[in-house]
Design a protein around this nucleic acid. Structure first.
Length: 696
DNA sequence: TTTAGGG
DNA sequence: CCCTAAA
């Protein structure tokens, strides 16, 4: 009842990191939502349950979400009472802090912490659409351990879940990291509704800290230990906005507490030094950043965008699935449409002024480690006017409006420093770095232009005047990113060289510093803006942009010279190899789903033709023959497409979607499919016969 | 790496 | 399109 009501009110502001798989599933089949509604409760619900009976009152809920919310607006969703957890009474609160425009996070905290959250009001606030409710763990690690150990024996029903939980904790499934602080496994809504107030209900679902993997969130209402009393915990992994890199994180504090817990808990201790621990840990932060980047609105109120756009994501069920490798490295053929680099990819300044800012306000990025490759050189490639290749080696004649085509393969972010306590988790480190990088990219950077190693300071000179349009400068042109003091992000200290990002919290309670003195670890490395070495992404991107479906006439009949179909043939990728900017280790965990590219009729025709000729079991050949130029079509894609084609051909035209495929083609699909299926059967039959013959 | 098939 | 077992 209560839960239902809460759901009605929405909580569409909470930031449940979408599970990638679920995201895809949701996109793919509309049934997901239904399923979600029927069977799943959202992560926040779970937290709410953990926190006890939430008092949600429609009257006190804001009528609508308004961006003009009070800056200090803060909502505390109070739990009505104590929550029994493993026999220990724990007062929990789910707290939503709406700071108006910046950070909106929800914390599950001990009641004694509520007042230290900087909240001025305690009105219930539940339907802020853009309220970010970061998931904080409701249970302490010991809780998990205890529960896991004890319940395993007691409750046969939850045994499976516990086992699941345990395996997940011990395993290295990326989902755990994805969720950062909080592992949630939702139970069905029905169960929740049945016994909404029963404290034990939580135990049928799974809420767990990710043990040691990320920031442990401590929620401990036990007799406050000397250290835990001030361990106000707010690790809003998901809620904070990257644009605000000064987000307070109390990692050191957190960890100090959790270390205490660790020593007592046996169940889910994870040696921090475990290798697994350092595995790439994709996080919601990254995802958000990616989304952020994709939006191309780095500074344009991303929060609102998130709030509106990603609603669907928020509705995803926070259930972990078996999905171990979702961030495994991708095939090279994949393209990454939402990559940062894309934003840099096509800098094609005309010969007008100010194509690029060349104000070198600070050299500091260069005086540091030279090898940080803060200068990523690019080459002028392409030449003058209509000529698309390097033909313009001559400099004598330059058409009037000749354009300089630039391909900047990568940028390196200037050196910056990060100060972070030793006790911080790797996850927090990543987050910090990510925030720093994002902040830098967002506002603190300028682009510098180097010509033959010299900085081009004259912004007003045309490229031609500078000599950039001449092709004898192929190797000479370089770009670099450098700090832009005029727009230094708040969290960056421009005084230091060149960036110093401190991880201290504005309102730190540093009581643990004595116990766990935060050794300052200075991360000092050239960090690439784009952690993923998509050496080929640009090429693919270009090609894909111009990639037209191979027409059957050419791709099939003239397949010998099918390269001619490539629309942008002159891109000499090799010549463009510029900066070996990416350290190998930087192989990123960021994986992006490929963009959807519906097959055109032309492509379908090519596919059908090829399959007619080659059969259904030789997708590689099909690919080579008919789609060799379409880098974005893998043989798996073709196989899949054939699968769907067969399906499409079998269903009624009314049920088909997308660009209609001519009946004629579909008939051919069916025919070919039948034929090759038969062939396959024959083959198998022959094989079997041969075998039996051999046996006899 | 490819194929085959489930999701 | 994704994921992956199996070849």
């Amino acid at each position: 009842m209560v839960l239902q009501k809460r759901l009605d009110y929405g909580f569409n502001g909470y930031q449940v990191p979408p599970i990638p798989r679920a995201t895809r599933s949701a996109r793919r089949r509309g049934s997901f939502k239904k399923k979600h509604e029927e069977n799943q409760i959202c992560a926040f619900d779970l937290l709410a349950i953990v926190a006890g009976k939430l008092l949600l009152d429609k009257k006190s809920a804001p009528s609508s979400s308004n961006a003009s919310a009070d800056k200090d607006q803060c909502a505390v969703i109070n739990s009505a009472g104590k929550n029994k957890w493993r026999g220990v009474e724990k007062s929990l609160k789910v707290e939503a802090c709406d700071q108006g425009s910046s950070d909106k996070n929800i914390y599950v905290s001990d009641p004694s912490h509520v007042h230290r959250q900087g909240c001025s009001s305690k009105e219930s606030l539940v339907t802020q659409n853009d309220l970010n409710l970061g998931l904080a763990s409701a249970l302490t690690k010991p809780d998990c351990a205890e529960w896991s150990n004890a319940e395993k024996l007691e409750s046969g029903q939850s045994k499976n879940e516990i086992v699941t939980f345990s395996s997940k904790v011990k395993g290295d499934s990326s989902e755990y990291r994805e969720f950062g602080d909080c592992k949630l496994e939702a139970e069905t809504k029905r169960v929740v509704k049945d016994e909404p107030h029963k404290s034990g209900m939580v135990q049928s679902s799974t809420v767990a800290n990710k043990c040691n993997l990320e920031d442990p969130v401590v929620l401990d209402a036990k007799p406050p230990a000397p250290v835990s009393s001030d361990s106000r915990v707010n690790v809003p992994v998901c809620g904070n906005h990257i644009s605000n890199s000064s987000y307070p994180t109390n990692q050191d504090d957190l960890h100090a507490v959790s270390r205490d817990d660790e020593e007592n808990s046996s169940g889910c201790t994870h040696p921090i030094t475990t290798k697994k621990f350092f595995r790439p840990a994709p996080r919601i932060g990254d995802r958000r950043i990616r989304k952020f980047l994709a939006s191309k609105c780095w500074k344009v109120a991303p929060r609102l965008k998130d709030a509106t756009v990603s609603n669907a994501d928020r509705n995803l069920k926070p259930v972990f699935r078996k999905r171990q490798n979702c961030y495994r490295h991708q095939r090279s053929e994949r393209i990454y449409p939402f990559k940062k680099r894309k934003h840099f990819a096509y800098s094609s300044p005309s010969n007008s002024d100010g194509g690029m800012s060349c104000q070198f306000v600070s050299d500091s990025s260069l005086k540091g480690s030279n090898k940080d490759a803060s200068v990523s050189r690019s080459r002028i490639h392409g030449a003058t006017g209509a000529s698309s290749s390097f033909a313009g080696q001559r400099t004598s004649f330059i058409p009037r409006d000749s354009h300089v085509k630039l391909r900047i393969k990568s940028f390196s972010v200037p050196e910056f420093l990060i100060e972070i306590p030793e006790s911080s988790t790797v996850g927090s480190l990543k987050r910090t770095v990510m925030e720093a990088v994002t902040a830098i990219l967002g506002s603190g950077l300028r682009v510098g232009v180097l010509l033959q190693g010299k900085k081009v300071r004259e912004d007003n000179k045309t490229l031609r005047q500078t000599g950039i349009s001449h092709n004898n400068q192929l190797d000479a042109l370089g770009f670099c990113l450098e700090p832009n003091p005029s727009q230094t992000p708040p969290s960056l200290s421009p005084g230091d060289s060149p960036f110093l990002l401190q991880c201290d919290t504005p309102q730190p309670i540093r009581r643990f510093d004595m116990k766990y003195p935060p050794t300052i670890g200075v991360v000092h490395q050239g960090i690439c803006a784009d952690p993923e070495p998509h050496v080929n992404s640009l090429g693919n991107y270009i090609e894909s942009d111009h990639d037209s479906a191979p027409s059957p006439a050419t791709s099939m009949d003239k397949s010998s010279n099918s390269k001619a179909l490539v629309a942008v043939p002159a891109m000499n990728v090799e010549a463009l190899a510029v900066v070996p900017a990416h350290q190998k280790s930087k192989r990123s965990e960021i994986a992006q789903r490929r963009i959807r590219r519906p097959f055109s009729v032309t492509e379908v025709e090519a596919l059908v033709h090829a399959v007619e000729k080659l059969g259904t079991g030789r997708w590689r050949d099909v690919k080579l023959q008919a789609f060799d130029n379409a880098k974005h079509r893998t043989y798996v894609d073709l196989k899949d497409k054939w699968k769907t084609l067969v399906h499409t051909a079998r269903i009624s035209p009314q049920q088909r979607r997308g660009e209609p495929v001519p009946h004629e083609l579909l008939d051919r699909v069916l025919t070919a499919h039948a034929y090759w299926s038969q062939q396959q059967a024959k083959q198998q039959f022959k094989h079997q016969q041969a075998e039996t013959c051999l046996l006899l």
